[in-house]
Amino acid sequence: MTMEPAPENIAGEVVHRHSFEHRIEWGHVALAAAAIVIVVTLFGSDTVSAPESDAESHL
């Protein structure tokens, strides 16, 4: 199937038309945010702790 060029494009100019649609899936964003909050809540307090000083550890 050969497409014939349009008469107004007979000089050999190439006409490009692009369309792009971007959508944010807000359900996925909410799910990811909830997962981050759960991970930080469950595991964040165990990994972040104040170091003990040597004076307190000898008691």
Rank of each mutant, 00 (worst) to 15 (best):
A35Q: 12
T41S: 15
E13V: 11
F20Q: 15
L42P: 02
F20I: 15
T41P: 03
P7C: 05
W26A: 01
V15M: 06
A55M: 10
E8T: 00
V37C: 05
P7I: 10
A34P: 04
E13K: 09
N9T: 02
S45D: 04
H16N: 09
A11T: 10
W26V: 08
A35L: 14
G44R: 04
V48D: 07
L59C: 07
H16K: 08
S57Y: 06
W26T: 10
S53P: 06
T2R: 13
A33Q: 05
G44M: 05
V29Y: 01
V40I: 11
V15I: 15
H58V: 14
V40D: 08
A11F: 02
A30D: 10
I38E: 06
A55F: 00
E25V: 03
A34K: 13
A50C: 05
T47V: 09
V15S: 02
M1V: 14
L59E: 15
V48A: 05
A35W: 02
A50E: 03
I38G: 13
H18L: 14
H58A: 10
L42K: 05
A55Y: 11
A50K: 06
R17M: 07
D46G: 02
S49V: 13
M1E: 11
I36W: 12
H22W: 00
E8N: 02
H28G: 09
P7M: 07
A34F: 15
